[in-house]
């Protein structure tokens, strides 16, 4: 799931990219997921838009797989864990959470995370604005302006994808991780989230999950 082939090493800490769009930090036994957007399907249904309800179970199933394969002790959500006001999907999420007593669930708050704090407390999710991982890595939902150049900021929010082009006028757009200077942008993990593609800048490095591999591109 987390290829050792193209890791990102930041001040001796190794970060591995998952083909499921998760990020794993073996030394810290920490699994990082961005923009899961649980509750979005139910939110739509409440408005009379019949989105399938299985989406929730697909998302939870993928989280469960990632947790058990990685053996992570901390599950860190980089914002937008829950899409909207309280709805029944949160109840399922609470039950799901209870199965993983040995794992810490942490959420760095995103613009969509608007539930009352008591819900996070009851579910056993630690809510914070930003979460340091050791001395040189910090995780938060939305990208900071400059930040400390010694610190790697891991963010979400944008749902990035990258456009690729080949001979014979071939083209593709795929969700990706984007490493630019001291910022690592993560793709959205959720199954019902959409994506945004932007122009690469010189120096950007892209890690693209393609089938069972991570493919690396550097923009020069």
């Amino acid at each position: 799931m987390w290829s050792g082939e193209h890791p990102l090493i930041w001040k001796d800490t190794e970060l591995r990219f998952g083909i499921d769009k998760s990020l794993f930090i073996p030394a810290l036994k920490t699994l990082v997921l961005a923009d899961v957007h649980l509750g979005k399907a139910a939110h739509f249904r409440k408005e009379g838009i019949p989105v399938p309800q299985d989406l929730l179970f697909e998302n939870l199933g993928r989280i469960e797989t990632a947790l058990s394969l990685s053996g992570a002790k901390t599950l860190l959500f980089v914002g937008d864990l829950f899409h909207s006001d309280l709805n029944y999907e949160w109840t399922y999420f609470e039950k799901f959470r209870a199965h993983f007593a040995g794992v810490d669930f942490v959420l760095t708050r995103g613009n969509h995370d608007i539930l009352d704090e008591e819900h996070y407390v009851r579910a056993g999710v630690e809510l914070t604005e930003s979460c340091p991982l050791g001395e040189n890595i910090e995780v938060l939902h939305d990208m900071p302006g400059e930040g400390n150049p010694e610190v790697l900021y891991i963010c979400g929010h944008v749902h990035p994808s990258v456009r690729l082009r080949g001979r014979g006028r071939q083209a593709l757009a795929l969700p990706c991780f984007r490493w630019r200077e001291n910022k690592l942008l993560m793709p959205a993990f959720g199954a019902f989230t959409g994506r945004y593609s932007e122009k690469p800048q010189a120096g950007d490095r892209y890690f693209v999950p393609v089938a069972d591999k991570i493919v690396f591109f550097a923009a020069s």
């Binding site: 990258v162 456009r163 690729l164 082009r165 080949g166 001979r167 071939q170 083209a171 593709l172 795929l174 122009k199 690469p200 892209y206 693209v208 393609v210 493919v215 591109f217 923009a219």
Partner: peptide, 10 residues
């Protein structure tokens, strides 16, 4: 296909 592609700067 990706193996033969490059970044699109357009």
């Amino acid at each position: 296909r990706v193996a033969r592609m490059k970044l699109d700067f357009g």
